[in-house]
Design a protein around this nucleic acid. Structure first.
Length: 445
RNA sequence: UCCUGAGUAGCUCAAUGGCAGAGCAUUCGGCUGUUAACCGAAGGGUUGUAGGUUCGAGUCCUACCUCAGGAGCCA
């Protein structure tokens, strides 16, 4: 075996003129008579190899010529600039060890050509190998790291809430239910918020980051039944401070993605200028519910949206799309009517019919990626809200305790990682943002 | 839950109610700079399931199944 240093494809440009070893898979094969052009991938990228018949042994040439796609290989060869494509490299193959050859009887099922959603999802474990899917997962990892890093470097303490809970956090959406030993029922968490309100009052500034579950029968490009959420919660923070936090947070994430993933974004097909506009100088626009409503009324009058928005109702998907399309940065819509929002949101002292809450709408019609609010800090008000929403009072005793012992104004938000990734990458559907998406009709593979 | 659409070769799709087709993939052959290479050949089908109409159904009708898009709800 060769002694050439092991390298990866992403950084292979540093080794032009040198012999290197790549460990990966056969991604594609083209040939032209006595020239082979195998394309290899190694998880960090793809590179074309070139194999003239005269340059290698007869056995190796034949073995390579008949090699099946996605067979695993260790390749040794000299790195050279691509003769036709600028900033691209190729490897002049000298030796190949086949780690495992894909059988002729069971060829790799996923073609390089287009395929349908059902087929790809059924083969998600293999679909992940395509350059686009790999690029998306790299961007996702950076978004997750940047999101945690933003809070870690600002003295937030990460506190992980439970995943098994005894009751609905918000008393709203459908929960996944399971038996908890003999007599009790448990539910998969739909948000860690209530629990991190407790840790925020212990530690000041906290965040949680983990999976959440919704048993909603939603069948759209924005919904998964299992998704990841990052949620900060801060004592003594008001709504304005929360909006500043959200703005800095998203700016940081997009900055990190632009630093590290211009190539990946190109593979994915995202227009990088759209992201550069997000981090350009200037604040994210802030719009009150009333202003947003007026915007929709005007748009309907001009025939720009189909359905008139009724004052007092939440915004529908088409409404959010219209509003976000008016700006090239994320839009923060605040102070919704309290009636359409959750029971724990603090009323606006200037207009108690409004809640001190904010939804951040991503550009390009990606909809709500962040939802947050200032929380009710009065014991009596919270108790009456729990009653008004017909929630089981005994389950919320601990939550009420937080208002009994040193209650303070506090605020927090939650961001769904998958929607953020879909927006940053410009994807049609959130199912591509997570390795193994869980949707209404699919839990395999 | 509701609305809409789609199920035909391994994949992506054609086929006026009248012989089941193409491209890609696979196998075989050709080609010394190919770019989802190209050229030639071969194999590959219970047309989602069950009924019905008809001389004849992939095509029309009914029910069901599966998937997708949207609404509602949400991140």
């Amino acid at each position: 075996m060769s002694t050439a240093p092991i390298t990866n494809i992403a950084t292979i440009g540093q080794h032009v003129g040198e012999a290197v070893t790549l460990r990966g898979w056969l991604y594609n094969m083209r040939s032209s008579g006595k020239l082979l052009f195998p394309t290899f991938r190694d998880g960090s990228g793809t590179i074309q190899g070139i194999v003239p018949k005269a340059a290698v042994s007869e056995e190796l040439f034949e073995a390579l010529k008949n090699l099946t796609l996605e067979s695993s290989v260790v390749v040794t060869g000299k790195v050279a600039a691509h003769p036709k494509q600028p900033d691209t490299f190729e490897i002049q193959v000298e030796d190949v060890t086949i780690t495992q050859r894909v059988s002729d009887e069971t060829p790799y099922p996923i073609q390089l050509k287009e395929a349908g959603v059902d087929f790809l999802m059924e083969h998600r474990h293999l679909w992940l190998r395509t350059p686009r899917q790999s690029a998306i997962l790299r961007v996702r990892a950076t978004i997750q790291r940047a999101a945690a890093e933003f809070f870690d470097t600002r003295d937030f303490v990460r506190t992980d809430p439970p995943i098994l809970t005894p009751n609905a956090c918000e008393g709203t959406s459908e929960l996944f239910e399971m038996k908890y030993f003999d007599d009790d029922m448990a539910y998969l968490t739909q948000s860690g918020q209530l629990y991190i309100e407790a840790t925020a009052l212990a530690l000041g500034k906290v965040y949680s980051f983990g999976p959440t579950f919704r048993a909603e029968k939603s069948k759209t490009r924005r919904h998964l039944t299992e998704f990841w959420m990052i949620e900060p919660e801060v004592a003594y923070l008001d709504l304005d401070g929360l909006m500043e936090l959200a703005e800095g947070f998203l700016t940081h994430i997009v900055t990190r993605v632009l630093e590290a993933h211009r190539n990946d974004l190109k593979v994915i097909g995202k227009d990088v200028e759209k992201l550069e506009a997000v981090v350009a100088p200037g604040h994210f626009p802030r719009l009150s519910y009333d202003e947003a409503h007026q915007m929709l009324v005007d748009a309907h009058a001009k025939g720009l949206i189909e359905n008139a928005h009724t004052y007092g109702d939440d915004f529908g998907s088409p409404d959010e799309t219209y509003i976000s399309n008016q700006f090239d940065k994320p839009v923060m819509v605040h102070r919704y009517p309290a009636e359409v929002k959750a029971f724990y949101m603090q009323p606006d002292p200037k207009d108690p019919t409004k809640a001190l809450c904010v939804d951040v709408l991503a550009p390009e019609g990606y909809g709500e990626i962040i939802g947050g609010s200032q929380r009710v800090d009065s014991y009596d008000l919270l108790k009456s809200r729990i009653e008004a929403h017909n929630l089981p009072m005994e389950a919320f005793q601990w939550y009420l305790d937080l208002r009994k012992y040193g209650s303070v104004p506090h605020s927090g938000f939650g961001m769904g990682i998958e929607r953020c990734v879909a927006w940053v990458c410009g994807l049609e559907h959130v199912r591509e943002t997570i390795p193994f998406p869980r949707t209404l009709n699919r839990i395999y593979p």
